[in-house]
């Protein structure tokens, strides 16, 4: 494990904590896309099918359990919690899941490391994670006042992806036979989706203004 990978994972963890903080303490999910959260739950459920069959490390298993548990509990909170669910604006969060799920599934059936159920599901989760942020980005554009926690949440998610790219570059040069086209290409696409958001995030930070994305 290199420093970029660890920093990436910690940033990912921090993004989840920021979102949980918003939900638990402020009891609000305003500006958060349930569609994106449901897609993430599906991403982790399909990627970590190996959790009980392939042991990599205690760190790996613990992180998997954290991401599975947090993603499903976030979905539960937004859908079912008495107070939190009231702040969810369904009319703004209109992205359709299957526009993303079906193409990712077809791609996973065509492009995978091995044609087995586990490997197809793994490839599907990689493709789906790459585009799962789209409903959230669409919702951000529609939101007039993006609160700080929501802005930080999306920023941390983007930073996590950027750090993973540095991790891959590092591993490519330090490990033999480290080539992973599926994760690299999807990861690059995923990070590029944040480019526009990053631009406005830094602009608002530089000018000390509230974050707002142009429609």
């Amino acid at each position: 494990m290199n420093i970029f990978r660890l920093a990436g994972d910690m940033t990912h963890l921090a993004s989840v904590l920021v979102l949980l903080l918003k939900i638990h303490t402020i009891k609000s999910c305003a500006g958060i896309s349930l569609k994106t959260q449901e897609l993430y739950a599906l991403v982790f459920a399909t990627r970590y099918l190996d959790i009980f069959t392939d042991f990599i490390s205690l760190y790996n298993t613990t992180m998997k359990l954290i991401f599975l548990g947090s993603s499903f509990s976030i979905v539960w909170y937004i859908r079912n919690h008495k107070i939190v669910s009231r702040s969810y604006d369904k009319s703004q969060d209109t992205f359709r899941h299957y526009f993303l799920i079906i193409p990712c599934l077809l791609l996973a059936l065509l492009v995978n490391e091995k044609f087995t159920f586990k490997e197809v599901m793994w490839a599907f989760s990689i493709y789906l994670e790459a585009v799962a942020i789209l409903p959230q980005l669409v919702l951000l554009q529609r939101t007039r006042n993006i609160d700080n926690l929501t802005g930080q949440y999306v920023f941390l998610l983007g930073a996590y992806r950027a750090l993973y790219i540095l991790n891959w570059i590092y591993r490519y040069f330090t490990e033999t036979h480290y080539v992973h086209w599926i994760t690299w290409v999807s990861g690059l696409v995923q990070t590029l989706l944040y480019a526009d958001f990053f631009y406005y995030y830094f602009e608002s930070w530089k000018n000390n203004k509230k974050l707002q994305l142009p429609a």
């Binding site: 490997e119 991790n167 992973h180 994760t183």
Partner: peptide, 10 residues
């Protein structure tokens, strides 16, 4: 035989 890589990343 196509070999799937070990998945050590999250």
């Amino acid at each position: 035989q196509l070999q799937a890589s070990p998945k050590d990343e999250l």
